[in-house]
Amino acid sequence: MSIIQVQDLTLTYKSGKGIFDVSFTVQEGECFGYLGPNGAGKTTTIRQLMGFTNADHGNCRIAGRDTRKNAAEIQNTIGYLPEEMSFFPGMTGSKFLKFMQDMRKTGGNSRLQELVELFELNTDIKIRRMSKGMRQKVGLITAFMHDPDIYILDEPTSGLDPLMQRKFINLVLEEKKRGKTILLSSHRFDELELTADRAGIIRSGRLVTVEDINSLKASRQKTFRVTVKTENDLTRLQNSKLQISSVRDKQVEVVVSGNINQFIKLLAECDISGLDIISQDLEEVFMKYYGKEADFDEQNIT
């Protein structure tokens, strides 16, 4: 059964930006990654899912109910994390969490305590004085503490250190195991690949594709920066069938997509002094996935 339904959603801002005819569904128990560069329209879609905005046309449904007209009724089934953390700055963390519990009329402190301990958050500090990471934790705890069936998380790991990011990913996986429906947005593919089942890619306000996460993974290329010790090895790499994107001194950047074994065999023959993986940004994923930029835009229009 589809829990979240976005249908022909169009919402244009005065600047001409916005989202255009976006449609997708998220099934019960599924984790859906909403992927796109900054300004692509992820947050715009999510705002409509929360019932904050009026669409030009199209609509969103959560558990069958219109998210704009029936906004208040569905809120307690949703755990929402906004993109920007703007709470009541004068409150302490614990006061704010208590306030949200009271607004939702959901009691029960055990889940709240668990989450505070999980994220190692000091809740006695005024939110005004909290760092970005701490505020993000308050936001996450707010989203998870009432044990909702659906999560809508906008850029959930921004501001978290790697350790906390791992904890967050584990938390999402746990919730998924419990049958929860999750929509999480990100501008980084690697953030989604551990949690999402499917991903929708949005760019310039248009949903480009909805794909199984594994096929996206397969189509993804990785760039390695190899530092060799001798000129000999440098020529050996250059003469191989590998795709070399740049050479500087004895550093070679190799683009690997399917031919990982060949790459490793060749490396084994060389004298290597350094090997780094260069994280790839989303634009490159797009490039690989759609070939040229021009093709990509055409695809949008047709």
């Binding site: 906004a71 809120q75 906004p82 703007s86 709470f87 949200m100 707010t142």
Partner: peptide, 17 residues
Amino acid sequence: DSGSMAYLLATPNSRIK
């Protein structure tokens, strides 16, 4: 303006309320 309204509306209280 500050965005804290998002938290108020993310609770089961209607805008009118």
